[in-house]
Structure formats: structure tokens, C-alpha cells
Simulated assay, not measured.
Amino acid sequence: MSSIASLATLNARVLTIMATRSQDQHLVAQVAAEHGVSDSDSPLNYEDGSSSDSTAADPTSKRTCKVVPAFGWHPWFSYQLYDDTASNSNSEDTSTEDAFKIAHYKAVLSPTPKDPSFLSSLPPPTPLSSFIASTRKHLTSFPHALVGEIGLDKGFRLPQQWLPDDASSRDEGLTPGGREGRLLSPYRVQMQHQQAVLQAQLRLAGDEGRAVSVHGVQAHGVLYDTIAACWKGHERKILSRREKKRIAPGAEESSSSDDDDDNENEPKKKKKTAARGKPFPPRICLHSYSGSADTLKQWFHPTVPSQIFISFSTAVNLGTDGGRSKLEAVVRAVPDDRILVESDLHMAGEEAEAMLEDMYWLVCEIKGWDLERGVRTIGKNFQEFIYG
């Protein structure tokens, strides 16, 4: 939160900030209430490359970076949610609140924790239905808000509990709930539980017609399968050559999906309304994508009913030799109108902005774009991802 003051000095016109756990949902809402985007100040008009306000024409004009909020529960913290929509087959005594908490964590963590002190240090789990209800209220309050950050992570391990001396010396400037240098425990969140939390949030995004930001680490196959399960039965229809000849030119776009009844000539507001009430999100960003170029093929298959965007960050995609070695092939595999960049950093300011600039330059180099074209293209993609 201490970096929010830097919004007034950034070159970036708009940033997306994302909630990840119980402690930061209200903080994202707080920042969005003061700095959030609205219909009246849509950040840029990319149709002609010009700004929608006067500040771009006069770079000395006073302007503040706007914020797009996102509300979600990250897979790292998914164990803190209790799936109250599932039948509880636990045979342990759950007659007390503490007994219920212990039984929950034994059921969703692997290997099953045996250490009573570790189990007692974990917070009481939040009902998943309660979180979904509160998130729906946030989405109603902020019409351009996303659902995120959500996803799956096979590699994550829970940090060890706070020791008495550690808790007293923690950095009060950081939002509580993070690792903050603690050693890692051997415990992971079972994939089935992560999937249940993810799918509940995907359904919410579909119901509200909101885009989602998706985290995927060491789980690219199961992540696709989990999301694809939400649009099962709603895939776009691929027309044969004979079918295309039978219909009027341009009609195949409107009949390519059983769910897409939109008239291409209707205003975008009507199209957004039509996108609500589906079991899958209309737009999905695979953020800091670390998979292969081949894996992307399934996401961009013509039957996929969601618009898929791919974003890259120096923090993740250039953080390892393996990431750097495959980045060029992956960037080339992403369609020009679906690529995004990000800082993937926990704070705003000069460091985050430098990371954004570095990735802009790198993507432009790989794509063969000059910087002006790259910024305009990626900016237009961002606007499409947010506003639809």
C-alpha cells in the first residue's frame, strides 16, 4: 500500500492490481475507489492511436495512473478456503470449531500434517460460498473489475508457521499473509481442492461477464483441463467448407458458437450483457505464461469460446535460463492481438515500470515491431481484455 502514492508519477496510463487472499480484498477495493477506471475515462483510444483525453497531447499535464481492480483467491492460499458446496466425508470429530479446522487442513494438505503446532497456527478456513458472495459484491461495485488472481500451482509449499520472535519483527509495511522470508514446510495443497476453488471463481466470472487472470505453475495440462471443463458443451462450432458456402458471407461469425447470438453491428454494451450468465469467463489471461509454444495450440484452438490472452514478465519469463531459452518461440506463437505485458510485482513504482518497459522492448524485438507500434498494439490488447 505504501507504493500507491507513486501512481501520480508513473508513465503507465493504467495498472491492474490483484487481490490474492483474505487480507487484501478490501485494500484493492480501497485503492480502486480512489483511482479506479470508469466509462468516462477509458484510458486510451487505440483505434487511431490517440489519447482519449488531453494529457497525452501535453506530457507536462497533471495526470494520475488509473487502476483496474481484480478480486480473487490465489492458489497459494486456496487451503484457507473451505468448500462448503462439497459433501464432507471426513470421519473425524468436527463438533468444535477447532476440530473442524484441523479436519479441514488434514483433508486438503498433502502429506497430511501431523504437527499439532503447525495445524493450530493456520487460520480458521473461510467458506468458499462466503468468499464468492463477497467477491460478487466487489464486482458489482466496480463494473470493470476482473476476477483474479486465480489458478493452479503444483510447486507451491506452505510456509512454516510464524515463531514468536519472527512475528514481532515482521515488516508492518507489508500486507499480512505473505511468506516474508519464512522457511517452507513440506505441505502442498491437493490439486483437487485447488481445482474446486478455481472453478468456483471461473463460474463467478462467467456469470458476471468478467475477464480473469490465471496463474499456472507446473500444471499447464491440468489447468487447461480444469478451465475447459467449464465450457464443455459451449464450444464454438467449426463449419465445414460446404456449410460455409450455404450461409451468407459473414454469417459464420455469428453462428460459430451455440451461445453467441450477438449481432456484430450491435453496440458493445449489448455484447457485454450477452456475455453474462455463462459458466466460463469471456476473456482469460494466462499471466506470466511459462508453458511451451506447443501447449498454446490448445488454448487458441478455434473451438475455444473464450478469448485467450497471454502476458509476459521479466520477473518470471526471464528469471531462469529455461524461461529465457523458450521465450522467443512462445512470443512468436501468440497472435499479435492477444499479447500483453506485466511487471508481476507486488508494488507499483519505478521498479515495476522498468520491468514493464523491459518487456515492451523485448516483445517488440521478437515481433519485429518498432516501439510505437508495439505500445499501441499491446495497449489496444489491454483495452480489449479489460473492456471486451
Rank of each mutant, 00 (worst) to 15 (best):
S89E: 15
N90S: 15
N90L: 12
S91E: 13
S91G: 14
E92K: 13
E92H: 08
D93C: 07
S95N: 06
T96L: 07
T96Y: 05
A99K: 14
F100Y: 07
K101N: 01
K101T: 02
K101I: 03
I102T: 11
A103G: 00
Y105T: 02
Y105N: 00
K106R: 13
K106P: 07
A107R: 14
A107Y: 06
V108A: 01
L109M: 07
L109D: 01
L109E: 01
S110G: 00
S110D: 11
S110P: 05
S110R: 05
P111S: 03
T112Q: 12
P113M: 00
P113V: 08
K114P: 06
D115G: 04
D115S: 08
D115W: 10
P116I: 06
P116N: 02
S117Q: 13
L119R: 06
S120I: 05
S121G: 09
S121R: 06
S121I: 11
P123E: 08
P124G: 11
P125C: 02
P125S: 04
T126R: 13
P127Y: 09
P127T: 08
L128Y: 01
S129M: 09
S129T: 14
S129H: 08
S129G: 10
S129P: 05
S129D: 04
S130P: 04
S130A: 15
F131G: 01
F131H: 08
F131E: 10
F131C: 05
I132T: 08
I132D: 01
I132A: 11
A133F: 11
A133L: 13
S134R: 13
S134E: 05
T135Q: 12
T135G: 08
T135C: 15
R136Y: 03
K137F: 11
H138Q: 11
H138N: 15
L139W: 10
S141L: 14
S141R: 12
S141H: 11
F142Y: 14
F142T: 04
F142V: 07
P143D: 06
H144M: 02
A145D: 00
A145R: 06
A145Q: 05
L146I: 08
L146A: 08
V147I: 13
V147D: 00
G148N: 00
G148W: 05
G148C: 00
G148D: 00
E149A: 01
